[in-house]
């Protein structure tokens, strides 16, 4: 077989995924089971996100793929190429130009708009999975809204470490009902989960799709005496000087030298183009 359907998946599969997406939108934070298909990339490498994107994309879309916030990480490149080949869709690295953005582990710094869809790749969709490995049990807990185990875990963290020891994939409660895993984004990104764009989450191997509609209430779990703290490295970006962005720490020599740079590469280069400078920005040539 040499010719695949638009966006790779056959129409019946896309309809099945689309129905799951709509149920997800109707029940924010609830994990809808779907008959995930084997994709031509491995499970765990974004098959859920890819299936959701394939079900959403139209030929008019402008598609952006990021991994760790960057457009040029190898798996982001690989997924972008896949859709260029199978959907003939236009791609972009600019957040503002994208209509569909597939992401792994980050939410872009640029606030998203009503005209955008953010698709997350999710490894383990069940926020309770590491507390209770059994699907039969966690399903009951969600049904009964029985989230005590999660609060006990977080409280034990505080008792032992003085802090909640979860730095990424920090659990949230959606619309006062379902506890949800926001995928392994750093907790710094959690406050952005309340946004204008549609957020869709795809977990291929675990066969789950879930969603957050625009302007939906999303609260990071916490306690009155230990409020949620979306902290990040206490540095400005060394390239663009931003003080409000999530930073990667880069080791630059073998003597402990390091620098901090925006993980959102598009945001950082845009700021640099706008004239923002950081500690390690190249010395400017005199204006010509």
């Amino acid at each position: 077989m040499s010719d695949y359907n638009f966006a790779y998946l056959d129409e019946q599969t896309k309809r099945m995924i689309r129905r799951a997406i709509l149920k997800g939108i109707a029940i924010p934070g609830y994990q809808v089971p779907f008959a995930s298909r084997e994709m031509p990339m491995p499970y765990g490498w974004g098959t859920g996100g890819v299936q959701v994107s394939a079900a959403c994309l139209t030929p008019d879309d402008s598609f952006k793929v990021i991994d760790q916030g960057a457009d040029d990480t190898t798996n982001a490149v690989s997924i972008r190429k896949f859709f260029e080949h199978t959907a003939g869709v236009a791609t972009t690295e600019h957040t503002v130009d994208a209509t569909v953005i597939q992401t792994r582990h980050r939410i872009p710094e640029e606030p998203l708009t009503e005209d955008q869809i953010l698709v997350y790749q999710v490894p383990i969709p069940e926020p309770l999975r590491f507390l209770e490995p059994r699907e039969t049990e966690t399903r009951k807990m969600h049904a009964l809204e029985e989230y005590g185990l999660m609060h006990v875990k977080l409280y034990e963290d505080i008792a032992r470490h003085g802090n909640i020891a979860t730095a990424y994939a920090y659990p949230v409660k959606v619309e006062d009902r379902y506890v949800m895993d926001p995928s392994p984004i750093p907790k710094f990104d959690n406050p952005k989960l309340e946004m204008a764009a549609i957020q869709l989450f795809g977990a291929g191997r675990e066969q789950r799709i879930y969603a957050i509609p625009p302007y939906t209430k999303v609260v990071s779990l916490d306690f009155e005496d230990h409020p949620f703290d979306p902290s990040k490295a206490d540095h400005p970006c060394d390239l663009c000087g931003a003080e409000h962005t999530y930073l990667d720490e880069v080791i630059i020599d073998d003597e402990g030298g390091r620098m901090f740079v925006c993980s959102d590469t598009d945001y950082c280069s845009k700021r640099q183009a706008d004239g923002h400078r950081g500690r390690l920005s190249p010395i400017e040539e005199a204006a010509e």
Partner: peptide, 21 residues
Amino acid sequence: TGFLEHIKLPHYVDFQSELEL
């Protein structure tokens, strides 16, 4: 195998958040 091998993918954003914690 997919899930096992996916840990080869970059995880520096989540690792960074752990590092800071």
